[in-house]
Structure formats: C-alpha cells, structure tokens
Amino acid sequence: MKFEKKRAGVKQQIPTASLPDIIFMLLLFFMVTTTMREVDVFVKFKLPEAKAIEKIENKRLVNYIWIGEDGRIQVNDAIVKVSDIQDIMYKKRQALPNLIVSLRIDKGQSMGIVTDIQQELRKAYCLRINYSAMMKE
C-alpha cells in the first residue's frame, strides 16, 4: 500500500508583492525620526538620571560640551583644555547670541571640573546651560 502525504491543492506562497512597501514605510520612519550624526564623540560618558527634566525645544541653538569618565573635555569634534573653552564658546556666542550649552557630563565626574567649566562659560557669557540627563524610570 502506498502512502502519500496529503497536500492542499492550492499553491503555498506568501505574497511578497507588498514587502517593498512595508520596508519603505520603515525606511521613511527612520528617515523622519533620526538626525544625522554630526560629530564623533571621542569620550565615553554615562549620563545621570533625573525626573524633573525638560526637552530642549530648539535643537539648532544647542551646543554640546562632553566630559568623559576619564575627565577629557570635548567641544565640537576636538578634545580641548578647560582654558580653551572661553575662547571657543565666546566665538560661538557671537555667531549665535542665544545659544544653549548642553553639558553632557559623565555621572561619575566630580563637581570640580563642572564648576571650572561653568566659570569659563560665565566668562564667555554663555549663560543658558542644560545639564543633560536621562529620564528616570
């Protein structure tokens, strides 16, 4: 006696015609929601967490200063010294008078370096700052 597996008579195929559309949709989502990476961040940092945080509304005004866990300071795409910050930020402020300086500081850092940078920023008249922090769950 012959055994034969029963198969449905219809074709077994997943329709793939709409696959490109789905992928395009994903693609558009990513294109809209993301911004291009402008600078390479050389320092390694972990942001602190806080609850009472707000979003920076005008991204164009934001300028970043990174301080990594090893204490190196990065402005734009270069590692700088504390004493350089005043000059750099003063020039930036002249180009963009109401800029916001976003401080992305590793949470293991001590306040000494933070205070130094704040003093430099005050000398450069960059008075609007923002301590970058992640949302605490």
């Binding site: 992928i23 990513f30 911004t35 291009m36 806080a50 009472a52 979003k55 000398k123």
Partner: peptide
C-alpha cells in the same frame, strides 16, 4: 525589497536617536 532593505540598513547605521533632555539652568553673569 532588497534595495530598500539596503537603504534601511544605511539609515539605521548612520543615524542616532538623540535624546536632548536635561535640566535647564541660567548661570549668573561673571
């Protein structure tokens, strides 16, 4: 589908979802 997959992967790799949140403060003048 393959072409758009390639594009998708390119965008995935080259972009960052930036979170610009933090505590705002205004420093006093020096």
């Amino acid at each position: 589908a393959d072409i758009s997959f390639l594009l998708l992967i390119f965008f995935l790799v080259s972009t960052v979802i930036d979170v610009d949140t933090g505590i705002g403060l205004t420093l006093p003048e020096y």
